[in-house]
Amino acid sequence: MPEYILTAEPPLGGYERHFEGTSLREHRELAIVAVSIPLGKDTAVSAALGEAYGATLPDHGVSVVSEDGATRILRFTADQIFLLFTHAKPDAAQVVSERLNGTGYTVDQTDNWVSLSLSGSLARPALERICAVNLRKDAFAIGRAERTVMEHLGAIIIRTGDDGFLLMSGSSSAESFLHALETSVKYVS
């Protein structure tokens, strides 16, 4: 019987490209875990986050980074947070569930998303053309995170640095999302 070895492959195969000093790069091993907060358990989840990650439950539209800098916690809605961290194995949800002592309901969403970093001077002008969120530096401070739409595709945008953004969209339409980003960057370069 033949032996198969399965190798994890990101939706865009590890895409990376540079445009006049601005880089667009796919994340290879970014684990994404959704944690749903059971009704009335905000305090318990917040306490568990504090113990495990040295972080509190973030406000809506804001992301916080864990004490060790390894995990970013996002919150878009009242009852759910996302945890993002580099993790190569397919057991991310279990890892989070154990660290949070089972206080929230965890779902591994890693394979459902494509994650790209766009950074450099062209990032903001390129995103302004396709993103419905106000990205002015004072309106969208470092750490802000929103779920929105780019072109016709649902997307998450997180400001990670002065001119740096982490962008996420559905893995099944990753090529279309990349096309929208590439086209917009080309138009402003």
């Binding site: 809506h60 539209g61 009242a78 419905a132 969120v133 929105t148 739409v149």
Partner: peptide
Amino acid sequence: PLLGPRDSSEF
């Protein structure tokens, strides 16, 4: 109410 002003295209 939670997220502030958003474009109606998101809805």
